[in-house]
Design a protein around this nucleic acid. Sequence first.
DNA 1: ACTCAGGTATCCT
DNA 2: AGGATACCTGAG
Length: 268
Amino acid sequence: MYKISSDNLDVWAIAKSGQCFRMNEVSTGVFSLIAMGKVLKIQVPNKDECLLDCSEQEFFDIWENYFDLKTDYKQFIKSTADDEYLKEASVYGSGVRILNQDPWEMIISFIISQRKSIPAIKTSIEKLCAMLGEDLGDGYYSFPTVSAIAQASIEDLLTTSVGYRAKYLKETALVIQSGRFDIKMLSALDDDALLEKLLELSGVGKKVASCVMLFGFHRLGAFPEDVWINKIVANRYSGNFPREKYRGYEGVIQQYMFFYERYLEGKN
DNA sequence: ACTCAGGTATCCT
DNA sequence: AGGATACCTGAG
């Protein structure tokens, strides 16, 4: 059991922020997270305590980076002071951090996410993992490898309720498996080049690519524009959000807005 | 029953 | 280039 001491860390908020789909509250104050090929149990007995069911070594090897605990989020929150709405949003979302998740998992997860509600996305992902992932025990399964999805038939993929996205999953997995699209090379690219490269993948458009950049490559300057953000920008910023005020970390601001707006709409 | 969901590919003009 | 349209399926 390792106790995290960190400001701006709210596991519940992260689980609800829509950036990850495999972190769930299994009972009050207890979360399970499947990531990095492991199942991590997280206990949040109160607002200021967070206990990970892992060794200190595992924490420093894996989870410190996964939870982005070396980044100071206070500066991001402070910078919204002159914007009443964003100030409220960033205070409400002050425990949200941008996780360092696996790029491959992000690509597949966000391809699935298009035109789906968050519960439906989670259902599909869990079916996919149960069918093609590695059995981790206790009903948990790892995220499938590239070759596992590449080798699956469209018929198999359709059993996971992904519908027309099955073709995208298969094509994307195949092009990556073949080596014609090299995920490992991507982290060396700058933001513009990375975006352009991701857009080559089947089923990946601007929104999905932005999410992959933000959540899979930790490009905090990526700014996914989804229906929620578009609504906020239209209603509160006359259709023009001042991204330049938050240059380099627009993605963090996007998360605050997304999370807060969903709260206002009763989704959290 | 019916709309809409953290969009994208495709087909137009 | 930019706009309209179809699309699997489940949740509300």
